[in-house]
Protein backbone atom coordinates (compact mmCIF):
# COMPACT_ATOMS: atom_id res chain seq x y z
CA UNK A 1 0.00 0.00 0.00
CA UNK A 2 1.62 3.28 -1.05
CA UNK A 3 1.40 6.59 0.77
CA UNK A 4 -1.53 7.87 -1.26
CA UNK A 5 -3.85 4.86 -1.11
CA UNK A 6 -7.11 5.72 0.64
CA UNK A 7 -7.34 4.75 4.29
CA UNK A 8 -10.86 6.07 4.72
CA UNK A 9 -13.58 6.63 2.18
CA UNK A 10 -16.79 8.29 3.24
CA UNK A 11 -19.59 7.74 0.75
CA UNK A 12 -22.82 9.72 0.75
CA UNK A 13 -22.54 10.02 4.51
CA UNK A 14 -25.42 11.53 6.50
CA UNK A 15 -25.82 12.02 10.22
CA UNK A 16 -29.03 13.30 11.74
CA UNK A 17 -30.16 13.63 15.33
CA UNK A 18 -33.82 13.65 16.23
CA UNK A 19 -34.69 15.67 19.27
CA UNK A 20 -38.39 15.33 19.92
CA UNK A 21 -40.11 16.36 16.68
CA UNK A 22 -37.09 18.25 15.45
CA UNK A 23 -34.51 16.62 13.21
CA UNK A 24 -31.04 18.16 13.15
CA UNK A 25 -28.91 17.30 10.16
CA UNK A 26 -25.17 17.41 10.90
CA UNK A 27 -23.95 16.02 7.56
CA UNK A 28 -25.86 15.32 4.41
CA UNK A 29 -24.45 13.37 1.47
CA UNK A 30 -20.85 13.89 2.50
CA UNK A 31 -18.13 12.31 0.35
CA UNK A 32 -14.53 12.35 1.42
CA UNK A 33 -11.30 10.40 1.15
CA UNK A 34 -8.47 10.28 3.69
CA UNK A 35 -5.19 8.86 2.51
CA UNK A 36 -2.80 6.69 4.43
CA UNK A 37 -0.06 8.78 5.98
CA UNK A 38 -2.13 11.94 6.05
CA UNK A 39 -2.18 14.40 8.93
CA UNK A 40 -5.44 16.29 8.76
CA UNK A 41 -6.60 19.13 10.95
CA UNK A 42 -10.35 19.58 11.09
CA UNK A 43 -11.53 23.02 12.09
CA UNK A 44 -14.92 24.61 12.25
CA UNK A 45 -17.34 26.40 14.52
CA UNK A 46 -18.64 24.83 17.67
CA UNK A 47 -21.49 22.48 16.95
CA UNK A 48 -20.49 22.01 13.32
CA UNK A 49 -20.05 18.27 13.82
CA UNK A 50 -16.30 17.80 14.26
CA UNK A 51 -16.59 15.40 17.18
CA UNK A 52 -19.44 13.63 15.44
CA UNK A 53 -17.21 13.06 12.42
CA UNK A 54 -14.37 11.69 14.55
CA UNK A 55 -16.83 9.34 16.23
CA UNK A 56 -17.94 8.05 12.84
CA UNK A 57 -14.33 7.55 11.72
CA UNK A 58 -13.46 5.91 15.02
CA UNK A 59 -16.29 3.40 14.92
CA UNK A 60 -17.89 4.89 18.02
CA UNK A 61 -20.98 6.17 16.28
CA UNK A 62 -22.85 4.99 13.22
CA UNK A 63 -24.07 7.17 10.35
CA UNK A 64 -27.77 7.68 9.65
CA UNK A 65 -27.06 6.65 6.08
CA UNK A 66 -24.10 6.24 3.76
CA UNK A 67 -20.93 4.25 4.20
CA UNK A 68 -17.65 4.50 6.08
CA UNK A 69 -14.93 2.39 4.49
CA UNK A 70 -11.65 1.67 6.20
CA UNK A 71 -9.05 0.06 3.97
CA UNK A 72 -11.88 -0.76 1.60
CA UNK A 73 -14.03 -2.51 4.25
CA UNK A 74 -17.24 -1.07 5.56
CA UNK A 75 -17.19 -0.41 9.29
CA UNK A 76 -20.50 1.44 9.57
CA UNK A 77 -22.50 -1.78 9.56
CA UNK A 78 -20.44 -3.75 12.07
CA UNK A 79 -22.04 -4.96 15.31
CA UNK A 80 -21.08 -3.25 18.59
CA UNK A 81 -18.82 -6.15 19.53
CA UNK A 82 -17.06 -6.17 16.14
CA UNK A 83 -16.66 -2.40 16.28
CA UNK A 84 -15.01 -2.70 19.69
CA UNK A 85 -12.54 -5.19 18.25
CA UNK A 86 -12.02 -2.99 15.21
CA UNK A 87 -11.24 0.01 17.44
CA UNK A 88 -8.81 -2.00 19.54
CA UNK A 89 -6.92 -3.10 16.45
CA UNK A 90 -7.01 -0.03 14.23
CA UNK A 91 -7.64 3.26 16.00
CA UNK A 92 -5.91 5.19 18.75
CA UNK A 93 -7.84 7.92 20.53
CA UNK A 94 -6.52 11.12 22.09
CA UNK A 95 -8.89 13.36 24.03
CA UNK A 96 -8.86 16.99 25.13
CA UNK A 97 -8.95 16.03 28.82
CA UNK A 98 -6.52 13.08 28.50
CA UNK A 99 -8.98 10.64 30.13
CA UNK A 100 -6.42 8.57 31.96
CA UNK A 101 -7.53 6.18 34.71
CA UNK A 102 -6.73 8.00 37.95
CA UNK A 103 -6.10 4.79 39.92
CA UNK A 104 -3.56 3.40 37.47
CA UNK A 105 0.07 4.41 36.93
CA UNK A 106 1.22 5.86 33.63
CA UNK A 107 2.55 2.46 32.57
CA UNK A 108 -0.68 0.70 33.54
CA UNK A 109 -2.70 3.27 31.62
CA UNK A 110 -0.59 2.67 28.56
CA UNK A 111 -0.94 -1.09 29.00
CA UNK A 112 -4.77 -0.97 28.93
CA UNK A 113 -5.20 -1.44 25.15
CA UNK A 114 -2.80 -4.38 25.28
CA UNK A 115 -5.15 -6.26 27.62
CA UNK A 116 -7.24 -6.76 24.49
CA UNK A 117 -4.38 -8.47 22.66
CA UNK A 118 -2.88 -11.90 23.14
CA UNK A 119 0.57 -10.51 23.91
CA UNK A 120 2.51 -12.06 26.78
CA UNK A 121 3.16 -10.05 29.93
CA UNK A 122 6.78 -9.58 28.92
CA UNK A 123 5.91 -8.41 25.41
CA UNK A 124 3.36 -5.99 26.86
CA UNK A 125 5.92 -4.55 29.24
CA UNK A 126 8.36 -3.98 26.40
CA UNK A 127 5.73 -2.30 24.27
CA UNK A 128 4.64 -0.05 27.11
CA UNK A 129 8.24 0.96 27.78
CA UNK A 130 8.83 1.77 24.11
CA UNK A 131 5.60 3.76 23.80
CA UNK A 132 6.42 5.81 26.89
CA UNK A 133 9.91 6.47 25.60
CA UNK A 134 8.60 7.62 22.22
CA UNK A 135 6.54 10.33 23.95
CA UNK A 136 9.39 11.17 26.32
CA UNK A 137 7.71 9.78 29.44
CA UNK A 138 10.00 6.84 30.12
CA UNK A 139 10.98 8.29 33.48
CA UNK A 140 7.42 8.72 34.67
CA UNK A 141 6.14 5.17 34.20
CA UNK A 142 5.26 4.73 37.86
CA UNK A 143 3.55 8.07 38.33
CA UNK A 144 -0.18 8.37 38.64
CA UNK A 145 -2.06 10.90 36.49
CA UNK A 146 -2.62 13.09 39.55
CA UNK A 147 1.15 13.45 39.90
CA UNK A 148 1.62 14.62 36.29
CA UNK A 149 1.10 17.98 34.57
CA UNK A 150 -1.50 18.36 31.82
CA UNK A 151 1.11 18.12 29.09
CA UNK A 152 2.65 15.03 30.68
CA UNK A 153 -0.75 13.40 31.02
CA UNK A 154 -1.42 14.08 27.35
CA UNK A 155 1.91 12.45 26.47
CA UNK A 156 0.90 9.36 28.44
CA UNK A 157 -2.45 9.41 26.63
CA UNK A 158 -0.61 9.52 23.29
CA UNK A 159 1.51 6.56 24.39
CA UNK A 160 -1.72 4.72 25.22
CA UNK A 161 -3.07 5.61 21.76
CA UNK A 162 -0.03 4.23 19.90
CA UNK A 163 0.91 1.24 22.07
CA UNK A 164 -1.20 -1.26 20.13
CA UNK A 165 0.24 0.10 16.88
CA UNK A 166 -2.99 1.33 15.27
CA UNK A 167 -3.09 2.71 11.75
CA UNK A 168 -4.96 5.88 12.61
CA UNK A 169 -4.87 8.33 15.50
CA UNK A 170 -8.03 10.30 16.17
CA UNK A 171 -7.47 13.35 18.34
CA UNK A 172 -10.24 15.65 19.55
CA UNK A 173 -8.74 19.00 20.60
CA UNK A 174 -5.59 17.35 21.96
CA UNK A 175 -4.07 20.72 22.87
CA UNK A 176 -7.28 22.48 23.87
CA UNK A 177 -6.38 22.40 27.54
CA UNK A 178 -2.67 23.21 27.25
CA UNK A 179 -0.55 26.37 27.10
CA UNK A 180 1.14 27.38 23.86
CA UNK A 181 4.57 25.89 24.61
CA UNK A 182 3.21 22.58 25.87
CA UNK A 183 0.74 22.48 22.98
CA UNK A 184 3.57 22.92 20.48
CA UNK A 185 5.52 20.08 22.08
CA UNK A 186 2.53 17.79 21.83
CA UNK A 187 1.94 18.79 18.22
CA UNK A 188 5.56 18.13 17.39
CA UNK A 189 5.20 14.68 18.90
CA UNK A 190 2.18 14.06 16.67
CA UNK A 191 4.12 15.30 13.65
CA UNK A 192 6.87 12.89 14.55
CA UNK A 193 4.46 9.98 14.82
CA UNK A 194 3.07 10.92 11.42
CA UNK A 195 6.39 11.39 9.71
CA UNK A 196 8.50 8.68 11.32
CA UNK A 197 5.96 6.00 12.14
CA UNK A 198 3.55 6.60 9.30
CA UNK A 199 0.54 7.07 11.53
CA UNK A 200 -2.41 8.66 9.81
CA UNK A 201 -3.65 11.41 12.12
CA UNK A 202 -6.99 13.17 12.13
CA UNK A 203 -7.06 15.99 14.63
CA UNK A 204 -9.90 18.30 15.54
CA UNK A 205 -8.83 21.74 16.72
CA UNK A 206 -10.07 25.26 17.21
CA UNK A 207 -6.58 26.64 17.16
CA UNK A 208 -5.17 27.78 13.76
CA UNK A 209 -1.64 27.50 15.16
CA UNK A 210 -2.29 23.87 16.03
CA UNK A 211 -3.86 23.23 12.65
CA UNK A 212 -0.78 24.59 10.91
CA UNK A 213 1.17 21.55 12.17
CA UNK A 214 -0.99 19.31 9.98
CA UNK A 215 -0.43 18.52 6.32
CA UNK A 216 -3.99 19.32 5.39
CA UNK A 217 -6.59 21.62 6.93
CA UNK A 218 -10.28 21.05 6.42
CA UNK A 219 -12.93 23.49 7.52
CA UNK A 220 -16.26 22.01 8.39
CA UNK A 221 -19.18 24.35 7.97
CA UNK A 222 -22.86 23.53 7.65
CA UNK A 223 -22.10 19.93 6.81
CA UNK A 224 -19.59 20.76 4.07
CA UNK A 225 -15.81 20.69 3.95
CA UNK A 226 -13.67 23.45 2.56
CA UNK A 227 -10.09 22.56 1.87
CA UNK A 228 -7.68 25.26 2.93
CA UNK A 229 -4.56 25.52 0.83
CA UNK A 230 -1.36 25.36 2.76
CA UNK A 231 0.95 28.29 2.65
Amino acid sequence: MNATSPLYELKDLSKRYTRGKETVTIFDALDMTINTGDFIAIMGPSGSGKTTLLNLLGGIDRPSSGEVLFEGQRIDNLSQGKLAKWRAANAGFIFQFYNLMPTLTAAQNVELPLLLTSLSGKARKDRVKTALEIVGMGERARHRPGQLSGGQQQRVAIARAIVADPKVLLADEPTGDLDRTTADEILETLQLLNAEMGKTIIMVTHDPAAASHAKRELHLNKGRFEEKGKA
Partner: peptide, 12 residues
Protein backbone atom coordinates in the same frame (compact mmCIF):
# COMPACT_ATOMS: atom_id res chain seq x y z
CA UNK B 1 -13.79 5.97 32.62
CA UNK B 2 -16.06 3.21 31.42
CA UNK B 3 -16.63 5.17 28.22
CA UNK B 4 -12.86 5.42 27.77
CA UNK B 5 -12.42 1.67 28.25
CA UNK B 6 -15.11 1.10 25.65
CA UNK B 7 -13.41 3.50 23.27
CA UNK B 8 -10.20 1.54 23.66
CA UNK B 9 -12.08 -1.56 22.57
CA UNK B 10 -13.28 -3.22 25.79
CA UNK B 11 -16.53 -4.91 24.83
CA UNK B 12 -19.79 -4.36 26.70
Amino acid sequence: EIAVLKTLGFTA
